[in-house]
């Protein structure tokens, strides 16, 4: 095991909530939020410390969490079964606290590729993937993913052969999805950590395939 070392393409430190955006001009949206925040604190609804603590908690949600789970599932069939039958419990096994109401894992197969959208808003498994990417919350993705998924995937550079079905899963606040990509060929000798490094955020949404091993 590599301990804390991981070779992901997403750098956690870049996203740490450690500073204000002092180089950016204050927008009306930010001013309105700051007004809301100051009143909630003054009125005793919440404290600044509670907000800071919750931001730190939220930072634990990152694609690395889903990658750890899927890599474990790839090497441990019993864990895979548990993840498919109870995703939140499988997360807890790896020390991940999933705050979502319900999580369901869906496995890609040679005959069926799966992708996730939330057509109504932006429901997303934040505990396992962090905040949703810009494409996921865009009106274009929300509109088109259910109508022409193959075409949308091609825009992401993913060409799913016609012989493979595509299933699109529409998330909501009560049920959010995690896609388990297929383990790439040629990864038989890789460690669990090295496998996790192949699993990208977008591959867990079904908009990418895992990285091919070097």
């Amino acid at each position: 095991m590599n301990g804390d070392e991981h070779n992901h393409d997403h750098d956690h430190d870049d996203h740490a909530p450690t500073r204000e955006d002092d180089d950016l001009e204050l927008t009306e949206g930010e001013a309105r939020f700051l007004a809301l925040k100051s009143l909630l604190i003054e009125q005793g609804v919440m404290t600044a410390d509670e907000i800071r603590a919750r931001m730190e908690f939220n930072e634990r949600g990152s694609p690395h969490q889903a990658a750890r789970m899927i890599a474990r599932a790839w090497v441990d069939p019993a864990y895979k079964e548990r993840m498919l039958s109870d995703t939140k419990a499988a997360a807890a096994e790896l020390g991940i606290e999933a705050t979502e109401a319900a999580l369901v894992t869906i496995e890609n197969t040679p005959k069926r590729h799966n992708m996730v959208v939330c057509t109504l808003c932006s429901c997303y498994p934040r505990s396992l993937l962090g905040e949703p990417p810009a494409f996921y919350v865009s009106k274009a993705y929300r509109s088109r993913a259910v109508r022409e998924p193959r075409k949308v995937l091609r825009e992401f550079g993913v060409d799913i052969p016609d012989a493979v079905d595509i299933a699109v899963h529409d998330s909501n606040a009560d049920l959010r999805y995690v896609i388990m990509p297929m383990r790439p060929a040629g990864t038989e000798g890789l460690s669990e950590d090295d496998l996790a490094a192949l699993i990208t955020r977008d591959s867990v949404v079904g908009c990418a395939l895992p990285v091919e091993p070097a």
Binding site: H15, D21, E30, M55, T119, Y141
Partner: peptide, 28 residues
């Protein structure tokens, strides 16, 4: 909010990092 299936343009491919106040807002 019910826009699933509506016609729309290209899906934005560029990522955008959350601003600090947006992270604060989600936490609040």
């Amino acid at each position: 909010t019910d826009i699933g299936g509506e016609p729309a343009g290209a899906v934005p491919q560029e990522d955008r990092d959350q601003l600090f106040w947006e992270k604060q807002m989600i936490a609040a």
